[in-house]
């Protein structure tokens, strides 16, 4: 009887019998297994320990923000440091519509979509006009300006108190069941985004995005319509993020710019991307769950000190994991055509 691990195989010899199991990563790459796990997890938690449901919701939402951000980064070839702007736009649009017009989540979703589309289209020329560094800085500033606008027009945006009385996302009477359903909805949105972006990055649009990522001028000389690709991959992710603003507004019943627009929230999203796997879309899911649970654990363990320790841990992880958490498992192979992040100077 002997057991050995050899060349990605688990070998079991028992007498004259020999058994082999492949533990090659690709057998773990079945999306169905992982999606199944993600769906089973909330059900399990709902039955065992429903207090954890908000963390799961949080994790799914963080991942769902980071996924379109990855697409935006790859498609425009620049790092956007202001993703929370679109969350703010969608959230405020939905909350205002809900409060002043008494609309429920379904019609306000449309409002949020329109708001996201409007601001996405309005700002997309920036990805053509501004070069790498200028773009980074300007996108960093836009949410902060938005925050200031919410303070200037206090009568509309209610400043740092936030808008109250947004209609709930789902109400079935039972609080725990409510949370469970919201959790499933968040998971659903995240999986849909994952599916869309994954299909996109495996389609024939991926090479043109990676070409733009690498060298815009040559890409255009080789027949890629650079402006079109950039505007599309700026606007659609912006709309996708605006939907999450809508989700936040209806989920909490309140929306305050001070929660979402400052740099702290942006950093969290950025860390989901970076620690998850350097803008690898699957890494975003891992990163989202990791960061949400890390925050929870730190608050439980350290209480008052957790806001201090949290960024320190993130910094250490950022500097020690060269390819992110997802990179521990997935080594980049040349055969893959998935575009990777490449910030130009």
């Amino acid at each position: 009887m002997e057991l050995e691990v050899k060349r990605e195989k688990l070998l079991l010899r028992a007498g004259t019998q020999k058994f082999e199991w492949h533990i090659e990563p690709r057998y773990w790459r079945m999306p169905a297994i992982w999606i199944g796990l993600l769906i089973v997890l909330p059900i399990f938690i709902y039955i065992v320990y429903p207090q954890l449901l908000p963390t799961i919701i949080d994790a799914n939402l963080l991942a769902a923000i980071a996924i379109p951000l990855g697409w935006m980064t790859i498609g425009t070839g620049r790092m956007n440091f202001g993703p929370q702007f679109y969350i703010g736009a969608g959230g405020y649009a939905a909350a205002l519509a809900s409060i002043h017009l008494g609309w429920g989540p379904a019609p306000t979703l449309l409002v949020a979509l329109v708001a996201g589309l409007f601001f996405g289209l309005l700002m997309s020329p920036l990805s053509i006009i501004a070069g790498g560094l200028y773009y980074t800085l300007l996108t960093l500033l836009f949410p902060l300006v938005f925050l200031e606008v919410t303070f200037i027009y206090t009568d509309i945006f209610k400043g740092d108190v936030g808008l109250f009385g947004v209609l709930p996302l789902i109400s079935v009477g039972n609080f725990t069941l409510n949370q469970f359903l919201i959790c499933m909805l968040a998971l659903f949105i995240m999986l849909i985004y994952l599916l869309i972006v994954d299909k996109l990055l495996r389609s024939k649009f991926a090479p043109q995005m990676s070409a733009i990522n690498d060298d815009e001028e040559v890409a255009e000389a080789m027949g890629v319509n650079v402006k079109k690709v950039k505007i599309i991959s700026f606007t659609i992710p912006a709309v996708m993020m605006a939907v999450l603003g809508w989700f936040y507004a209806h989920y909490y019943g309140t929306f305050a710019g001070i929660t979402y627009l400052p740099l702290a929230f942006m950093l969290k999203i950025l860390m989901v991307s970076m620690i998850g796997g350097r803008v690898q879309i699957y890494g975003n899911v891992i990163g989202g769950y990791f960061i949400a649970f890390l925050e929870l654990v730190l608050i439980m363990l350290l209480g008052d000190y957790s806001p201090v320790v949290f960024p320190i841990i993130l910094l250490i992880l950022l500097l020690t994991l060269p390819e992110g958490l997802f990179g521990l498992y997935r080594k980049r192979r040349y055969r893959e055509y998935l575009p990777t992040l490449h910030v130009r100077r």
Partner: peptide, 21 residues
């Protein structure tokens, strides 16, 4: 020469093949 530095040889030729016409 201005290759696409992060693309494989076949990937960069595929870009042209897809979008050149």
């Amino acid at each position: 020469p201005r290759p696409f530095p992060e693309l494989t040889a076949i990937g960069s030729v595929a870009v042209s093949a897809l979008h050149g016409k």
